[in-house]
Design a protein around this nucleic acid. Structure first.
Lengths: 171, 171
DNA sequence: AGTTTAAGTCAGCCTTGTTGACTTTCCAAG
DNA sequence: CTTGGAAAGTCAACAAGGCTGACTTAAACT
């Protein structure tokens, strides 16, 4: 009876694990509640600036890849260009982001954070890093690898590519 | 120099771990991309019904605690009652949720899923469980505990209470 | 020269968050 | 017993940020 709703999880042959539907439900709720905590600190900071999560996402990925184009940002964020453009426009108007016409291809705009933009980015990421550090510390060092491994597997393949390429990966 | 941006993570004294700001940034992006994957399947299903994530959340927690009140749902979801009410109204109108006036306290409404509501809940949670199961399988069984531990630590304390009490916990 | 691509704009729609004003119900103090 | 406040829920209106579709401009490719 109970076996009906259980899943046989065979890893690399190391061990054996049964997960009931109820245990999976708990994991699903863990994602939900954790993501709320994960975004709570930045949300508070952004609210003071009159910005939202969309602004945060743009700022984060411009900081990660300075000089990135609008099109590249679109494929990472997975939103429409109209939606991104609205956010980007306010950031440029407010002097947080610099949009430079491309040298090789003048159709492209290369995006950079200004000093002001960098300041906000640091405030946001510092809050989020602190939350992440504390979570890792409280969970114990052994938890880090599993956390990362499961999250990576939960991504859609296209997004996993962006994740793996991010930062210092192959250009 | 490199030590400036590194964090000494001492767990239960078992091992020692240094996390650079860049590694923390990767973990932050992992959360972002993974959450997108996590919600992708339900989002597609909901779209066919003309519903959004807010409807999903309501359905999920009504299913978890049948007969729960609007107020209780509010404290779990962390939105305003006006916002929840709009979602709840459409679900009741569409015959997915049953809202019964309280017997002891007539101010309260007790919420239950109808058969139709249960059908949608099953479709949504089945998709999400499949994603979660596959992620666990691909990451390996040893990853499960760490994944759960870190997520639990990432929650705000108030939300952690809801998480721990969820389902079969103390009433 | 003609087509495709990158970026941006305008208009309009939907979901889902917000605040403020309101009703109904309950309960407790006078 | 009544009255006044608190609590649960509802209605209205607004804003952020998703979406689609149609269109322009400029540059690049073929």
């Amino acid at each position: 009876m109970a076996d009906r709703n259980a899943t046989n999880l065979m890893g690399r042959g190391e061990s054996l694990l049964f997960l009931t539907d109820d245990q999976l439900r708990r994991a699903i709720e863990a994602m939900f509640f954790a993501y709320r905590g994960f975004t709570a600190d930045p949300d508070r900071i952004l609210h003071d600036y009159g910005y939202g999560r969309a602004h945060h996402r743009a700022i984060h990925f411009i900081n990660r890849s300075p000089g990135t184009t609008v099109n590249n940002l679109l494929s990472i964020l997975g939103v429409t260009k109209q939606s991104l453009n609205r956010v980007l426009r306010t950031l440029v108007e407010d002097g947080l982001v610099d949009s430079r016409v491309g040298i090789r291809d003048k159709r492209e705009r290369h995006l950079h954070l200004t000093e002001k933009g960098n300041a906000l980015e640091r405030a946001l990421s510092e809050a989020q890093r602190t939350r992440m550090r504390d979570a890792f510390r409280n969970a114990g060092p052994d938890s880090v690898a599993g956390f990362r491994a499961v999250l990576e597997q939960m991504m859609d393949p296209d997004m996993r590519r962006h994740y793996l390429n991010g930062g210092d990966g192959p250009r």
